[in-house]
Amino acid sequence: MEKTYNILFAGVGGQGLMLLSAVLGKAAVDAGLDVMTGETHGLAQRSGSIYVHFRIGKPISPLIPYGSADMLIAMEATEALRYIEYLKDDGVVIMSKNIMHPVAETKAVALDKTRKTKYYTLSAVEEQLRKVTSRVIALDSLGLAIQAGNARTENSVLIGAAAACPDFPISSEDLKNAVLSLVPPKTRDANAKAFELGTEAGTACLQ
């Protein structure tokens, strides 16, 4: 692989972002590709903003330069926007439609007696993202996971969607095998289904 393919993963602490990055790492290594990541481990608390810089091909630094990510995968919609400086023009965004509202925002919404203060919405996120790229895949990842038979297969939905992107450097086959080899055996069928649903939804969004 001559070029480096950069993915920025974003999410909220407790969502399983590290596992998502581990699955993709295994897929890339099994496909014989070179991988490098820059991760956030730091503090144990849940609910903070976290990211992983994930680089395949010929990366040298563990950090993706601004404007150089080919893909941004967000497990929570506002977190996609939070790291937008990394996305290249017309890069791909794959994100869950799920929004986890920060507590300070909840307080502002609750205490505004005029009810003018509203939560930041998914459509606001999408509108901003579309100023940078037309390739936005917003998925009801939880809904699709439930449809696949297990609410905890959201990760597989998102990875399935990545497989739908034509320039993605790892084949759909390799991606799926990595997912299935790392999930608990009992949940294999549900994860396989979730992966497929993700690919279908991703393909639909990109058309």
Binding site: L43, Q45, S47, S49, T78, L81, I84, P102, Y120, V132
Partner: peptide, 17 residues
């Protein structure tokens, strides 16, 4: 550009679990 796009995005400060 990112600063502009994120102007109204609520901050996510650390809180207790």
């Amino acid at each position: 550009r990112a600063a502009e796009l994120k102007r109204d995005l609520p901050e996510r400060v650390p809180v207790f679990c």
